[in-house]
Design a protein around this nucleic acid. Structure first.
Lengths: 67, 67
DNA sequence: ACAAAAAGTGAATTATTTATAACTTTATAT
DNA sequence: ATATAAAGTTATAAATAATTCACTTTTTGT
């Protein structure tokens, strides 16, 4: 149950710092770090807020893989 | 930050009991009850598992509204 | 009407996400 | 090269999703 994500790609494409993204979706910068690199399962709200920001759907941004 | 969802609609459309849905996505029946009626913010994994099951995207199934 | 199945409730516990803080490491610019 | 910003790490605390249990209520079928 590892999480693959394109958050970093989309963030950089938007010329955005982790800090800025964090503020826009009302979480801590560390939460963005963990999301981009780490392997954990965010809340639906956080996932949808980020997807909305980048004008993509959740499935484009996040994918759960086996193991 | 209330959560509107169509889980119940899609579940019934699929002729599925709460119990069956719960087993298919590996949560308790009570979690499905709370999801369908209650207003709380599930994990992304749970939301995506359910969306996948019904062949819709997450945004079709869940929507966050103000207050 | 009655029984059985399905759905709903509430409270207490457990598991996990997110926050906070105090750092270190890497990238960027002057 | 060196200062500054950005990104990453680790540990602990706080918030909350999810479990569990013991029910009650509603729905469905015979």
């Amino acid at each position: 149950m590892a999480l693959k994500t394109k958050v970093k790609e989309y963030r950089e494409k938007a010329g955005m710092k982790q800090n800025e993204l964090a503020e826009l979706v009302n979480v801590r910068r560390e939460t963005i770090v963990h999301l981009e690199n780490g392997r954990y399962n965010p809340s639906l709200k956080l996932a949808m807020d980020i997807a909305k920001l980048f004008h993509v759907n959740v499935e484009e941004l996040f994918e759960f893989t086996e193991d």
